[in-house]
Design a protein around this nucleic acid. Sequence first.
DNA 1: GCGACAG
DNA 2: ATCTTGTCGC
Length: 217
Amino acid sequence: MRLQNLHSWGISIKEAKVVQKSLSERIVKYDSFSEVKTVAGLDIGFHGDVARASCAVFSYPDCILIEEKVYDGRVNFPYIPGFLSFREIPVLASVLEMVETEPDVLIADGQGIAHPRRLGLASHLGVLADKPTIGCAKSILIGRCEEPGNEKGSYTYLIDREEVIGVCLRTRSGVKPVYVSIGNKISLESAREVVLNCCKKYRLPEPIRWAHKLASN
DNA sequence: GCGACAG
DNA sequence: ATCTTGTCGC
């Protein structure tokens, strides 16, 4: 057996890199939607062998739960920094097929273009689904940034190779910031605005918080 | 070669 | 991601 190709996608890391570079060229970095009325949060939780993918659709900007779905499946691609999407997209795609409410924007728990080859989970998902997506991560994968102000809403730019790849956003006063980046079909400004408006009482946006609960219960 | 490294 | 109770601080 070939130890390098034991993944569901049937590809090696080397080939995955080629796929990432290719798909990253398809990312649309400006707003490509009319109005945001619904936002969906996506996440995955692991329970031994099963991976529970979840999707929570909320109204925007009120943030009222509209629909929730979970899908139990398995992942066969290991977690390798820089290749998270190859591990999570299969089950996320399955749970998305169950959703009846068509979300205007998807928020993924991870990076968008704030990635070595500019194709983090949110971007990969956005290109395949051809939908607006936002990457909202709890920590940095790549890039550097200054510490933003202490008040909710303040932010600084996340930079890599002289390029702005996202923002470090304070979603709640006095609390550790999150990292927001373009996934697909949305501008960095709009991505930041949507995430901030979805943060009501906690650090993470409501759709992500709810999806997180669904995936872990 | 060494250190970093989303979830 | 996941294993896990109490504890420090506003």
